[in-house]
Design a protein around this nucleic acid. Structure first.
Lengths: 128, 128
DNA sequence: CTTGACCTTCAACCTAGGTTGAAGGTGTAC
DNA sequence: GTACACCTTCAACCTAGGTTGAAGGTCAAG
């Protein structure tokens, strides 16, 4: 598949695919006689996967390190477990912090509604 | 307070404080006769607050738009109510998204632990 | 044979959130 | 009177994840 075909199929720009390749996130494409990149069809799924992983909060470096691009056989996917567990812990901490923030903002609103503006700054400073 | 004092008290660099001021996230400091910035002590709390909000996923622009820096005297604090309410909704949406993300990551871990590496690609591709 | 849609490389630019460094003024202490 | 910490501005640099544009090669259609 030419880069444009892959791009359309995966819903990304061609420049992004070249960028991924240059960064080593996906494997270098083969080349046709005229020098055009020639991708295997699986590249489309791979790019969709990468997009998805990014949305899950993984950086391209993490995705690359996870060996996603070169994880053909089941065994190699095990490399994804440690970063996934770490990410899970991150996200859980984040949820806890966000929940605390929500409560705090709600409390600030109550304070303001009660007309006790002066105490707001103190509340903000003390919280967290 | 001079910028260095504020920086030490808040645990940030002086360059960062100048940066915040330049970006309009905090109000411009007054100046002493020799041209040094002169901050009110409350700036320390404000910077601590900004740090905290950032850690929870708010951008400087959002913090700025929230009018945090210009929350002055009690009366004007009412101006904070609408942005605060908006922020509350944001945070709640954020929590919901993070929770969904957590569940998804947990599901991926389970898939990997079950040794079904081949299905990971499909799961990831289909999710979201 | 030229038009238009592709493809190539490389370099420059973008946002976000800063840091680093050069060049210079200020203030206090010995 | 000079050393040293502190302040000023401004410009350049950094990572991340790309996009945009210039300059040019390729290919099928009309």
């Amino acid at each position: 598949m030419k880069i444009g075909e892959v791009a359309r199929a995966a819903g990304v720009s061609t420049s992004r695919i070249r960028f991924y390749e240059a960064e080593g996130v996906i494997e270098p494409a083969g080349r046709t006689a005229n020098g055009y990149r020639d991708y295997p069809p699986a590249t489309v799924d791979l790019i969709v996967f990468i997009e998805r992983a990014q949305k899950l909060g993984f950086s391209l470096r993490e995705i690359q390190a996870g060996g996603v691009a070169s994880a053909p056989h089941p065994g190699a996917c095990d490399a994804l477990l440690p970063p996934l567990r770490a990410k899970l812990a991150d996200v859980e901490a984040h949820i806890a912090a966000s929940t605390a923030l929500r409560d705090e903002i709600a409390a600030m609103i109550v304070t303001l509604e009660a007309g006790e503006g002066e105490t707001l700054r103190a509340r903000v400073a003390l919280a967290g």
